[in-house]
């Protein structure tokens, strides 16, 4: 396999670089690899668009303020406080 086809065929590595690029800056070598790969690879260009969008969706999902109605039962809380008091009394 020639050097060029190692770049153009390796979608596994290209998609890793796409993920890395969404978070950090790629090295020069990585940037060249990815640029050459994406010129000829429709599937990875589509991957890039889709995974970018998925990243936004994940971010939105985590940033919705959750937990407003996640609470503990009174019974559980009572037990928790009892164990605290127990430990306080031991010391």
């Amino acid at each position: 396999m020639g050097v060029l086809s190692k770049i153009t065929r390796n979608c596994n590595h290209a998609t890793l670089l796409i993920e890395k690029k969404l978070i950090t800056t790629l090295s020069l070598r990585e940037r060249i690899f990815l640029r050459i790969h994406l010129i000829g690879c429709d599937a990875c260009r589509l991957y890039q668009a889709q995974t970018t969008k998925i990243g936004q969706m994940i971010k939105n999902l985590f940033n919705e303020s959750p937990g407003v109605n996640i609470t503990l039962d009174d019974e559980v809380k009572k037990e928790m406080q009892e164990r605290i008091e127990e430990k306080l009394n031991k010391n």
């Binding site: 590595h13 589509l46 889709q50 969008k53 936004q56």
Partner: peptide, 22 residues
């Protein structure tokens, strides 16, 4: 061998392409 997408699991167009998560 070379890390290229296999046919079946390769990315295809689907609803997400027109979807605006914002």
């Amino acid at each position: 061998d070379d890390g290229h997408w296999n046919n079946e699991p390769a990315p295809k167009h689907f609803g997400i392409d027109e979807y605006d998560p914002l």
